[in-house]
């Protein structure tokens, strides 16, 4: 226990672009710590030489031909965005090139 400190939660939250502060931070740190402590039970399982499974199906090589399909109407696309300017989506100024 005590592996997940509030500092770690803050860092991870920033990676995920969320803000966690105050009491919520302490509470989340405690909850995540408890959950991670529980899932660390996995360390007891011997897995040397065991292939990881990222897909349960033995499917491979699923591809499609290089044939065009219709795109969405640009008006529809731009209308989905919470902010737009003419034919573009708009976001707060991105400073880095």
């Amino acid at each position: 226990m005590g592996v997940v400190t509030p500092e770690i939660v803050k860092h991870v939250a920033h990676l995920a672009r969320m803000r966690v502060e105050g009491e919520a931070l302490t509470q989340l740190a405690a909850q995540l710590d408890e959950i991670l402590d529980y899932v660390r039970k996995l360390q007891a399982v011997a897995t040397d030489g065991i292939e990881p499974t990222s897909h349960v199906l033995p499917l491979t090589n699923v591809q499609r031909p290089d044939a065009p399909r219709p795109s969405l109407d640009p008006g529809t696309v731009v209308a989905l965005a919470p902010a737009r300017s003419g034919p573009f989506l708009s976001v707060p100024k991105v400073l880095e090139a």
Partner: peptide, 14 residues
């Protein structure tokens, strides 16, 4: 320690 391990145990469960 977490994700890779879990994917391996997933193999065992399968």
């Amino acid at each position: 320690a977490y994700y890779l391990k879990a994917m391996q145990v997933r193999t065992l469960i399968k």
